[in-house]
Design a protein around this nucleic acid. Structure first.
Length: 586
DNA sequence: GCCGTTTTCGGCCCGACTGTTTTCAGTCG
């Protein structure tokens, strides 16, 4: 069980206890613990396996440590099961609807007799919900939209959870196979799809039987769905299906290529193979007439054989990637090594975990030439946002840290709220003292498209707003994107010289690939940012790069591929002059 | 439920925003 899943359990417990009228301190203790576990630097399961004492972690005491151990060990929690038994079965789904908290859920249950989503929808349509005290037409509409969204949800696995689960399984499998095995997550995970249907693993080994036995009996496996000589599919306790295919080292190339997909990409390759008189399969290529097989130890050699350049997994979407590859453009897509700086990072001044100096040191260790420290503005009260006075102190600390670490430029920044009415959290006077201003929507996300579009464009028109953060505000699998005229926003971004962020946080990936494509068409400038709240999450740069590559984006379209000096001079340009780097041919 | 170390019991105690009100409850991160 991953930290995210453990945290969800404690959030659920907090909500249910609050409905029961439990002491607020108890409720908050569970909420705090959930947040802490979400931010642990390593998996709780691993820590427990290593014999570490979780009660040493702040906010985790005996009770929560024991419950975590039970969850990690068995995938269940007796305490939660007993708690759930006290409520109608539809209640948790109700509480998951954004806009419905414990108080409202309790009220609609007790007063309107609503205990599931269907009854909730009916209660909204009859106006019963809106008639409750402190509810009204607007609240009811927002909740109805959220209900419809949660119904339409695919039930697919968000990439963040898929990756965490795949990593955990891979680690456990390697540990169980002392003879050595190389496990590669393939399928949608490797292509960096934002949601996947199942987890696909490829194990490279010469002892398939032993590996498949170990796989079928890993902790967390609820049952074995299918088992053949070279693969097995299991269902995890979380309901997720995982398939492991085992291959011999000499066939690795064709196997991971086929199991990475996409199926559309593979069929394009098959056509290509057919033109060469070859047949493509999971084992490799075979001559169509003689049947003579060829195996490939890696993907590169297989692409070579087909007369194609290597294509990174994230572009294998079965669209026009082969043509793009043959034109030589695939090799010129943006790469992690092109990124010279990060322009969105938090510290413990607001809601980040680590001190500014640790974030900057880590950025330097990773070879970045610059980093913008963008803690939250005061509008984000709970994120410990910075008042104007604290922002001034923040700016001086940025300069002190820059001096102290040396060898990396540290930008005075902010992630500032765009308020519901389109005004900003800080005055122009304050903003002009900053090097880099990310403006983001964090509230009133249910506004209608026109209001929201106007709101964002108003922020872009401010001469000090450098970039718009996580434009759609979606959380993959959890929160739907805002409604807005995205094309109008992309156009305004290009006209005003405001950059659009590709937020590399796995929960967000925002802009998403399709929006990146569209933004590029409109000539908007992009930045790839981490939105890091911990030193480890500077990894998010890589995620952002993958999103950009899915949109076939080249380095020249990404601002933070500029070396520090060049970026410096660019920043000194008037905003409307900041489009010079781009041309339609890039 | 967590924490402390003047405590193993008693204190802890978010705050801005929205949508509802006409002074504020509930949600959210």
């Amino acid at each position: 069980m991953t930290n995210g899943e453990v945290a969800e359990v404690f959030e659920r417990i907090a909500g249910l206890l609050e409905m029961k009228g439990e002491k607020s301190f108890t409720v908050r203790a569970y909420q705090r613990a959930a947040r802490t576990i979400n931010r642990l630097p390593s998996e709780a399961a691993d820590m427990i396996a290593r014999g570490e004492d979780l009660t040493a972690v702040p906010d985790i005491g005996r009770a929560i440590a024991d419950k975590t151990a039970e969850l990690v060990d068995t995938g269940r929690l007796d305490f939660l099961d007993r708690l759930l038994a006290e409520f109608p079965p539809g209640i948790p789904a109700l509480m998951d609807v954004p806009g419905l908290g414990p108080k409202t859920t309790l009220r609609i249950w007790k007063e309107l007799n609503v205990t599931d989503l269907d009854q909730l929808e009916a209660a909204i349509e009859t106006g019963a919900l809106a008639s409750l005290p402190r509810m009204g037409r607007k609240s009811a509409e927002n909740i109805l939209r959220a209900v419809r969204y949660s119904r339409s949800k695919s039930g697919r696995l968000p990439i963040s959870r898929a990756l965490a689960t795949a990593r955990q399984l891979t680690g456990a499998l390697v540990e169980r196979c002392p003879d050595g095995i190389n496990v590669i997550p393939c399928g949608g995970i490797r292509r960096f799809e934002e949601e996947v249907d199942e987890i696909v693993l490829v194990g490279v080994t010469s002892s398939p039987g032993i590996v498949l036995d170990a796989f079928s009996t890993l902790s967390g496996v609820a049952n074995v769905v299918a088992r053949q000589d070279t693969n097995a599919t299991v269902e995890l306790e979380s309901g997720v299906n995982v398939t492991l295919s085992v291959v011999a080292p000499e066939s690795k190339g064709a196997a991971i290529l086929n199991l990475t997909g996409s199926s559309d990409h593979i069929s394009l390759l098959s056509q290509r193979a057919a033109e060469l008189g070859l047949k493509l399969s999971q084992r490799g290529l075979a001559d169509r007439s003689s049947g003579a097989p060829e195996t490939f130890p890696d993907e590169q050699s297989l692409y070579d054989r087909l007369g194609l350049p290597y294509m990174p997994p994230e572009v294998r979407q079965g669209r026009d990637e082969i043509a793009v590859a043959l034109s030589g453009d695939i090799a010129r897509l943006v790469d992690l090594y092109d990124i010279k700086g990060d322009l969105h990072a938090h510290t413990d001044w607001s809601d980040g975990r680590d001190p500014m100096i640790a974030m900057v040191q880590e950025a330097k260790n990773r070879g970045l030439e610059y980093i913008a420290i963008t803690d939250h503005s005061s509008g984000r009260g709970i994120a410990n946002g910075l008042s104007p006075e604290r922002l001034l102190a923040h700016m001086s600390q940025v300069k002190e840290v820059e001096q102290e670490i040396g060898g990396i430029r540290v930008l005075r920044g902010t992630e500032m709220d765009i308020r519901a009415d389109g005004t900003l959290d800080y005055s122009d006077d304050l903003l002009q003292q900053l090097d880099w201003v990310v403006a983001s929507v964090h509230s009133a996300m249910g506004q209608d498209s026109t209001t929201m579009t106007d709101r964002i464009i108003a922020a872009m028109k401010n001469p000090h707003v450098s970039a718009i953060g996580h434009l759609s505000t979606r959380l993959i699998g959890d929160r739907k994107p805002i409604e807005a005229d995205y094309d109008a926003v992309f156009r305004a971004a290009a006209v005003t010289g405001t950059a659009l962020e590709i937020n590399g946080s796995l929960e967000r990936l925002d802009l998403k690939d399709l929006h990146v494509e569209r933004a590029l068409e409109f000539g908007a400038m992009l930045v790839i940012s981490t939105d890091a709240h911990t030193t480890e999450s500077l990894d998010n740069l890589d995620h952002g790069v993958r999103v950009a590559r899915r949109a076939l984006c080249k380095p020249v379209r990404i601002l933070n591929t500029m070396p520090a000096d060049e970026f410096d001079s660019w920043l000194r340009l008037d905003k409307t002059g900041r489009t010079v780097r781009l041309s339609a041919n890039d």
